[in-house]
Design a protein around this nucleic acid. Sequence first.
RNA 1: GCCCGGAUGGCGGAAUUGGCAGACGCGAUGGAUUCAAAAUCCAUUGUCCGAAAGGGCGUGUGGGUUCAAGUCCCACUCCGGGCACCA
Length: 947
Amino acid sequence: MTEHSPDAPAQRYDAALADTIETTWQARWKADGTYHTPNPAGTLTEGPANGPADLASREKLFIMDMFPYPSGTGLHVGHPLGYISTDVYARFKRMTGFNVLHTMGYDAFGLPAEEHARATGEHPRANTEANIANMSRQLARLGLGHDDRRSIATTDEAYYRWTQWIFNQIFNAWFDETQGKARRIEELEAEFESGVRTPADGSVWAELSAGERRSLVNTYRLAYVSEAPVNWCPGLGTVLANEEVTAEGRSDRGNYPVFRRPLKQWMMRITAYTDRLLDDLDLLDWTDSIKTMQRNWIGRSEGAHVDFRVPTASADDGEVATIRVFTTRPDTLFGATYMVLAPEHPLVENLTTEAWPEGTKDAWTGGASTPGEAVTSYRRRTSQMSDLDRQEHKDKTGVFTGSYAVNPVNDASIPVFIADYVLMGYGTGAIMAVPGQDERDWEFAEVFDLDIIRTVQPPADFDGDAFTGNGPAINSGFLDGMQIDEAKSSIIEHLSEIGAGEGTITTKLRDWLFARQRYWGEPIPIVFDEDGNARAVPDDLLPVDLPELIDWAPRELDEDSEPEPPLGRADGWTTVELDLGDGVKTYKRDLNTMPQWAGSCWYYLRYIDPLSDDVVANPISEKYWMGGDNPTEGGVDLYVGGVEHAVLHLLYSRFWHKVLFDLGHVSTPEPFKRLINQGYIQAYAFTDDRGMYVEASEVEEVSGAWVRNGEPVNREFGKMGKGLKNSVTPDDMYRDYGADTLRLYEMFMGPIDQDRPWETKSVVGSQRLLQRIWRNLVDEETGELTIAEIPIPDDLNRVLHRTIDVVRRDMDALSFNTSIARITELNNELTKLEGPTPHAVADALVRMIAPLVPHVAEELWSRMGHDDSVVYADFPIADPSQLVDDEIEIPVQIKGKVRSRITIAADADETSIEAAALADPRIVELLAGAEIRKVIVIPGKLVNIVA
RNA sequence: GCCCGGAUGGCGGAAUUGGCAGACGCGAUGGAUUCAAAAUCCAUUGUCCGAAAGGGCGUGUGGGUUCAAGUCCCACUCCGGGCACCA
């Protein structure tokens, strides 16, 4: 803390006084439980010791921040931006009659702790707990009004017990397509037993052994083990979800290469929820950009499957294969002049002929003497390319397989190619190529000299290649003349009739790969029986504790290796004796842990009832806080966090919530009703002549140039953080200005959702405002109040009530920067006032600043003689009679330019306003007898004369 | 390439959604106070012409609608973000 200057008045509001005030009130709040939020039932029904008695019966408001990962580097001033916003809003709402739930937790499992531990040799738990302690200290110093009884860390056993419980709920559920919702697995077994439903694989339930039944049922579960190509990241020793792999084919964390290979892994059936995840976005008050990102990620597209037969060379003795393609443009089928399969497509071997057929063009062969040679060499070439190379290599390449397929609508014989521009992972891994209506196909057709048939008539002025717009069908038999939509439905109907295809929907969303071969995560609560069938650990045996491993570090492995879960090294833990209803037997534990995202999927639910040990959350409290009385409007009322979670966290969380909703554990279909993405704090960063970042705090400006240690440096601009070496810590701000000043400055910088550049030199402006407010209420020399019970001058009273009116509205709209501007204006009026400040103005002012700067507000409130906390004081309400004037001044324009002003009665009618405007001496002079063509009068606003 | 945002003084940003552009703050300039400095207080601060009164211009660019456009429409430029050979 900066020392109080010996020359300054004893009671000046400076960093030293702020520090005293802030630490005093933080201690008081803690002692009084000021932010203890009462639940309606179950645990935590107690409210604050000095708060209103009726809190629990008030309307609720559930406000959340995206909880942080407890990083070892501590906070910089960019981190708490969102937390301050939610705190100000929560405090405002408390003062306007709401019971507000606001707390903070830590997302403490996951790779970074383990990577840090790997580097330092410290156990992840010790490191994580130290980081949490440090971050909690830094955040507490900001004066955030959190109910600390509700704080959780995802690494707490009492917390991950319920993460595992939710896993079991998901494991013990299946998705009923006809009802469009998840149901309990017992209901599936009952349906098989009674014969209402027959197993999809054709087996007969009654003839199956217990083990076979278990194995069959396992294939229906929402959490299931599958052997499928997954993202294997040897550098991290674990497999990763699609969402955790970058476009460059590397791990999101650590940037290690990722390889696709088939492995047995836990999956979650998120694809069952595709339609609901899309449709329910409409229920949410989120920005369009986040909704669009989710829609793009899910990637639903409607189209058709079309089957192309590939007859044998002698035509009449059957066929080699049937190639199924997915297309969003079945209407262009008549323009399909060739086909392309992904190089990895399983039919490629069948389709590759012994020799090049008659009519093979040179360009199609890739220079090889046989199709087999061409295909083998092309496939080898593709498999050696990284995903990145494959993306950058936009020139179309490919080879002919030697086979011809038959277009089902016109019997045209079209060549079948393999090319890397068709991806195995989307649709069916095969396409019908329609160069006339598809740019990629057009490019390929040009390179390989293939036919191009337009099947949609482009407009006369169209001079491009492929035409992808709407227009009438041409060269398309019975479709000719139809617009795209009509042509699509007609051709789909036709294909169904001739058995060559059907309408279908494809999505990019894949099931969620849920297992990680890491130590620092929740153990998956599954054991395997002697048949190898997965069995859930019974709920009453949860949590499955994470064993205290000494040798917990993952092995760094090469590409061809198998994952080696660290939990496999936990002696005495990997097997367990259990009675799962058929006697005590020995089971093998699942050795995987859950991904980072698991704990954050449901933490809002535990905030509601963190101490309950018999249910995940008391149903009455859950319904109260989530707003389940009106489910379609329900959910967390405000969720603030970074845009980087637009897909991963927010998609997974919605998915888990929907499963819990289907199973009756939560009362709303969506977890987060309203979402705001706060902007980032940015700052100047500096590089030396080698391009390396240097400590921004050591750079000085010398006559317009940027210099560090006498050396010139380059100035850049970017997100504040360790990487750019441009961090400013909140601790520095507490020392130099105090927490209230930091809060005020961050809220004043701009709108909550906008990025904003940090400027330490501007922070002083916010401190000055607090000093001026303080000085208007307190004598700086003596500390005596300069407030008196005197009448408020009329003008000041009007300013006061207008300020109250606007601040109330702006705070409600989370527009804190403009709220502060209005409060500043009011305070500037007080500064001009001779003599003491009228009590009623001081009272309203202190209440209005309380959400923004709670410590100094509490101090002033207390000095003004209140025993209770300002936290639950009523926010002022404007007197409507003070919002209207008897007389107002309005501008008079001539041809849209302000030329004069007239003062008229506020309720004057159009005629009298017009008359007053035309009688104004200045207007008369300017018009100088010119002909008046029109006069526009907007009562209460302005007059515009057209002359 | 496609999809979202955005562009307003030296800087951060306001503008109740078509009605006085630049609120509020930072910075800057001048003044008061002080032995001096800091702090504080007062004044000025979009730009150009003008001694002033006053006037011209002005919200990325070019057009348009309107009595009136930062705001609406059309075409573009630049910046930020997301997706991307997704059939």
